[in-house]
Design a protein around this nucleic acid. Structure first.
Lengths: 233, 233
DNA sequence: GTAATAGTGTCTGTGAGACACTATAAA
DNA sequence: TTTATAGTGTCTCACAGACACTATTAC
């Protein structure tokens, strides 16, 4: 990157913002409290500047790891995808910033350690999102991410990224119910899931719940797409 | 944007690249021939730098207008949406560039005037895409855009953005057949489309084809989503 | 008339949703 | 035995696809 070249284009700051979801009794997303102005004290999405020698995708992974304490690894059942880029002129009052937003799904909810930036990070129930005002345009980003997760559960096997390695079909249905906020008929859900090639594979094991018959356990199959899709009510 | 601030973040160039599709006898996309190195003489997607005082979306509209000679207007049946952002470290050999890719659908294929940048722009049949090597990572961008259009025809009313204001259902079916590259049964297509609320509304007019009975004409309805979707074979 | 296109009718298979029913465990 | 959960069977309705058929035009 020569001095000559760098004078020929308008310089922008490029950041990443990550909408991190996890399911554990509640469907929640990770928010941090801002330690400095602007929006000091408000909640915001975890994120930060992209560095000159890392790809934008890598920046998202790094920020996610820094913010959750988790060494983020897509091979361990977690999921990361690019959501959308936000490039309004005045989205940051300090300077011109283009932010690439990401969507992350965690298979386990990690215990959050205090961030390096003196920010508090905490899990926030998505049902409380409408009541929470986020910094910058993070309200928009979060609600777009939320709709994207909900939609993707319909036509992909992504629900398996929000649950541990081994799970019963009732637990998988619980993920759907928590994300979609509706009830699903377990018999019909079971048939759909088992009929979808590559969605889940039985492990052969069983696990006893507190009551009732012990459930068969499954693991995520290799498949990514669901056709026909599972529909919301 | 103070001098103080601009020293605290790594500067990036931000560009837009637009994948422009149109249907007219063939399903085609707009490519420009590069007039300078790198990749001089190769085909590439139309695009350019985002300016400091315009949003990234506006930059896409501006580039599209400049490249097609068309004053791009989403109210006149055209369509523009953000596709994905490409941020690999070495995607441009000259410097660090993050590019926000857009997908555009035109309702009419404009006559291309010579670009201001001494580039030739031309319409290229999408079937020839695999044989064409594009500059930078534009191959990836184009094929992602192509899959996105094909998928979106299933669950949205976007096909109406690839056709003129008034159209017969056979013409609408032709759009689907050209984009998907498959044959569709007109009677079944007709029933699906008419049953989808907000997809098309009859104008009351008819238009005679070269042969056969004159067809009823329709206009795009207000609807955006198709549920249930129209499926590819 | 014939050929071509527009449009309707109808049958069949598949699958989603509703829900009755059986099976297996803990208290 | 009661209760809760896992899992199966079955009925019904809606709809996609196949395709026979009718209607309206140009030649």
């Amino acid at each position: 990157m020569s001095e000559y070249d760098s004078k020929r284009f308008p310089p922008f700051a490029v950041t990443v913002d990550v909408v991190v979801f996890s399911v554990a009794a509640t469907f929640s997303l990770l928010l941090v409290r801002r330690g400095r102005d602007p929006f000091k004290g408000d909640y915001a999405l975890p994120g930060g500047f992209v560095l000159p020698d890392e790809s934008v995708d890598d920046a998202a992974r790094r920020e996610l790891a820094e913010e959750t304490g988790l060494s983020f690894d897509e091979t361990s059942g977690n999921y990361l995808e690019q959501l959308q880029t936000f490039g309004a002129v005045d989205r940051d009052p300090r300077m011109r910033v283009v932010s690439v937003a990401y969507l992350a799904l965690l298979s386990h909810r990690p215990v959050i350690e205090a961030g390096t930036d003196a920010v508090e990070a905490m899990w926030h129930n998505v049902e409380d999102l409408p009541k929470t005002r986020l910094a910058f345009d993070h309200d928009d980003i979060a609600s777009i991410a939320l709709e994207r997760v909900r939609a993707k559960l319909e036509y992909t096997t992504l629900a398996t990224s929000l649950i541990g390695d081994e799970f019963s079909l009732a637990e998988l249905r619980d993920v759907y119910e928590l994300v979609w906020g509706c009830k699903l008929d377990l018999p019909n859900f079971r048939r759909k899931v088992l009929a979808s090639d590559g969605f889940v594979v039985p492990t052969g094991k069983r696990r006893a719940a507190s009551r009732g018959a012990p459930a068969q356990l499954f693991r995520a199959g290799g498949g990514r797409d669901l056709s026909p899709p599972l529909m919301r009510a």
